[in-house]
Amino acid sequence: MCSTCGCGGEDATTRVTLVEGPEQAQPHGHAHLHDHPHDHDHAHDHDHATRTVLLEQDILAKNDLLAAATRHRLAERSITAINLMSSPGSGKTTLLERTITDIGDRRETLVIEGDQETWLDAQRIRATGRKVVQINTGAGCHLDAEMLGRGLTELDPPDGSLVFVENVGNLVCPALFDLGESARVVIISVTEGADKPAKYPYMFRTADLVLLNKVDLLPYVDFDVDLCLDLIHRLQPDVEMLPVSATRGDGLDAWHEWLANRSAATVLQ
């Protein structure tokens, strides 16, 4: 649904754009089609008895079907897609800039940025020289499989490449939507509460890896790393948490190694 006028329809709200350069001007506003043919004159005939139709269908069946198709399409072409999820301000985009600068020469690396509004993150990524597509979700609080499918079509990543998908900054809604990604990485930073995994269990339960970012700030903040890890393990006993600093570089080798192992696993499947 549109945040401005409340009109429905995904095409009117989600915008997928290949961002060519930092100088590219973002159009202000978007086209609203206010002339939906609403027919409010339904004939209600309450005299007839109703008939029950069994559907027995998963609510997210359509999303999950699209996600499965995307996963198949990526695996066939040995493309690894990493879904990055966190609260706003955890350092996702900074980590992404650093990661693609560090490993982008070894493997073609591309990015899909998800935000409600603006091309700001896509323009930061574009400045590193990588191909990037921005998805603006409008009122939407998460990416879904249909949006990622459209984003991948626009991005057109080459065989064997690595695609980072930066989800909308939100620890709630993205948890429920399978995008068809190869792996899900949740980022939490030490400037947040160590109890975040307890507050947002659905998100942390879906993670294949947790990155603890901004560890260079640990001496200055009251963040209990052991408590955080313990809470994560109560949700998923086997998931790994890697401490990193995207600005100072701590732990990034382990993160790159995890990406390489995960990519190998994806390609072999």
Partner: peptide, 16 residues
């Protein structure tokens, strides 16, 4: 709840 319920509800209506 959060806004994902909107997307969930849209999925319900679309599917039906």
């Amino acid at each position: 709840g959060s806004v994902h319920e909107l997307a969930i509800t849209e999925s319900i209506v679309d599917a039906i």
